[in-house]
């Protein structure tokens, strides 16, 4: 089961992204769509199509540890980015009316659920996930927020530029392991 985290600036520029593979088991969701796909779908567009149709074939393949066919790690990355980007419209609609920072499951796309966290300074944290895990995700977002505030306070960090601190990266990975 994979999670994809994106940190976006107020102008929707991605500043940081992380793909996390959880060791927790995947809920078995069979998809009838894959079998219905025409045979040509195994060609160049295969990755995109299976991902867009919510196919389980790709989801199963990342059991193979270290395999190149991991979802989101290789050629399907652009699909993940597209889903995250598409969810921004919904996120922006909701955040205008809702004062909560944590917006749980604001958007859904096939097997992907999109949760978001809006900081007071209008930074958006967007997380793509496959299973419901509200409390875990909330705690995860809270830790990422704290780490982000610490990054912001660094006088050598310019606001709304990409976050390249290795320590930040390591910390986010640790809390992803802990909560997701």
């Amino acid at each position: 089961m994979s999670h994809h985290l994106f940190l976006l600036s107020p102008s929707d520029t991605p500043l940081y992204s992380l793909t996390h593979y959880s060791t927790k088991p995947i809920p078995s969701t069979g998809s009838a769509l894959t079998s219905n796909l025409p045979s040509w779908s195994t060609s160049a567009f295969a990755g995109t199509l299976t991902a867009l149709s919510g196919a389980s074939s790709a989801t199963q393949s990342h059991h193979v540890q270290g395999g190149a066919a991991r979802m989101g790690g290789g050629q399907d990355r652009h699909v993940i980015q597209m889903i995250a980007n598409a969810s921004l419209d919904v996120v922006e609609d909701v955040m205008r009316k809702d004062g909560a920072m944590y917006l749980k499951s604001v958007d859904k796309f096939n097997e992907w659920m999109v949760s978001a966290f809006i900081t007071p300074g209008n930074m958006k944290f967007v997380l793509l996930h496959e299973a419901k895990n509200d409390d875990g995700i909330k705690s995860f977002f809270n830790e990422v927020w704290e780490l982000y505030v610490k990054t912001m306070l660094n006088p050598f960090h310019t606001a709304h530029t990409s976050i390249r601190s290795p320590v930040f990266d390591a910390r986010v990975r640790t809390s992803a392991k802990k909560y997701l």
Binding site: M95, A100, Y102, P120, G121, N142, E146, M152
Partner: peptide
């Protein structure tokens, strides 16, 4: 100001169950 805002809100809201923004 950008830093004040984030830090102030974090100090006020991070402890609460459902952190809020001003809209």
């Amino acid at each position: 100001g950008t830093r004040v805002l984030e830090l102030m809100a974090w100090r006020a809201e991070s402890g609460s169950k459902a952190p809020k923004r001003e809209i």
